[in-house]
Design a protein around this nucleic acid. Sequence first.
DNA 1: GCCAACGTTGGC
DNA 2: GCCAACGTTGGC
Length: 158
Amino acid sequence: MNYWLMKSEPTVYGLDDLERDQQTLWDGVRNYQARNYLRQMAVGDRAFFYHSNTKPPGIVGLMTITAVGIVDPTQFDPSSDYHDPKASPDAPRWQTVTVTFGQRFDHCLTLDQLKATISPDELGVVRRGNRLSVMPVTIAIAHRLLVLGGLNPSIPGT
DNA sequence: GCCAACGTTGGC
DNA sequence: GCCAACGTTGGC
């Protein structure tokens, strides 16, 4: 089981939305490196939900990957912001995953807090200028994030 | 609103 | 393949 970090602007889709919906397709990723990480995900992996463009930005909760290898339908939709005219159903370019609500942190683990405790080499999101919306998190760092977020990493299901 | 970082595009 | 122009991300 691997851990990931996934960013979203809550004005577009936030943890509140996911808690309400319980499950959502993580569509709209249009960066190849991020897509490649999405392709590496497996059912049962966990992802930290990071809110960007918020005051403060930070990790607000945890989700579970519940379906993988899904062709992102928005790439074929001319009315979508995520439409990709170079993609076709015969040759899709963008795959993604379905995520399910897991747990909310007891407080937002802010970017400032992350920068204070974790180095850029350990967690990409604290690196200045990092624009990657999907990135891997090592088990060791994931456990530290869970503890910092008020979750107990030793309890199964967290 | 500013701007640094960085990805993409397209002319050559 | 290079690189300038341009667009986007996202913290501040």
